[in-house]
Design a protein around this nucleic acid. Sequence first.
DNA 1: GTCTATAAGCGGATAGAC
DNA 2: GTCTATCCGCTTATAGAC
Lengths: 207, 207
Amino acid sequence: MKTRDRIIEAAIALFNDKGTAAVSTNHIAAAVGISPGNLYYHFRNKEDILGAIYDQMDAVGFGDYQAIIAESPAGSLEAMERTFLMIQRFNWRYRFFKRELTALILQHPQLRERHIRTHRALLKLVRHSIDSSIDLGLIRPMDETERQLFTDEIWLLALFWLNYLEVGGEEVTDETLRRGNEVVRQTVRCRLTDRALHLLATMEGTS
Amino acid sequence: MKTRDRIIEAAIALFNDKGTAAVSTNHIAAAVGISPGNLYYHFRNKEDILGAIYDQMDAVGFGDYQAIIAESPAGSLEAMERTFLMIQRFNWRYRFFKRELTALILQHPQLRERHIRTHRALLKLVRHSIDSSIDLGLIRPMDETERQLFTDEIWLLALFWLNYLEVGGEEVTDETLRRGNEVVRQTVRCRLTDRALHLLATMEGTS
DNA sequence: GTCTATAAGCGGATAGAC
DNA sequence: GTCTATCCGCTTATAGAC
């Protein structure tokens, strides 16, 4: 593994463990087992490392989503559930980022712009999934306003479930992550068509 | 205003503006117009200031909720909406705290314990409201599991709506805060009884 | 690419005068 | 209660040898 990548991995681990504020470039260098000067050969400063981590997040998140869509059609209940769990795992891997997100984008305007662009693109994806589900006759018809609000709700739940667990002092485990999925499932369920409910009952009966 | 309180107010303003990491005790002292030494006469350190702010938050939050319950019965749709908006205003006043919450409780175990206790107490209040609404025949009957999940959902939405706006690059205004209320209203609505829906239609017709 | 050495500055915190 | 002065330690960042 290249030194540059080892620095990135060490930074992610330390940030997750202690928070970005408590981690200096010296700590990162020590964790990698290199000198502080060497770290500055690879990165201009801490912000630069953060940027590189964000690059990685972009690539990983995009790749994971593509993998899901390749197997389950967008708008299917299955894709929705798998995407939710993928996002939870993603948020856990980069948990420092979600924890400090609002503070980080306050201090790094460039990161802020990048992040907002990504956020809006993903919001459109969610909206598109919901539209598809309605077109497929799985979700009851909704007018424009309802769709917007429902999109915000689903996206908020997916983004903040992990945070919610943490601020409530609950451990993050497979079980508590699944509970987040249950919350989403329940809120989707009460908007399903009779046909979808029937489909679901059949699925649950067989599994 | 006592010096101690001026320090607290200045700290809140600076933390909201720049984030806790970027604000030193020197900055706070300068903002108040006192010497660094004087600040240390009133507080042992930065963490101590944070604790004092948390005391204030506890008192303010509790007071505001009491004021609402004194006017609207717990479990009524009205109390739910007023509480939601109260929480949004509260989160905005102490927005640095919500932004950095997970990071802050990671670094300050004492704060973590306090916060989790408060969180659980409030969660019980939400649950109690929902139970009341069901008893009143406003919300459709639910079994234990459904009630838990619904409680988590409502509480998560109330806690993180402000964060959601910020990470999406949306300005926090009366209008965007109200949109959060609309999200909650919509998710409550699809669990209302026919009688409640009828009541609501009458209310909306008259307003 | 990697190291050592080091400059410059900041933040936290205390002592002691008033 | 408030100030001035000051110390220590840490962090960032760079220069220059290997």
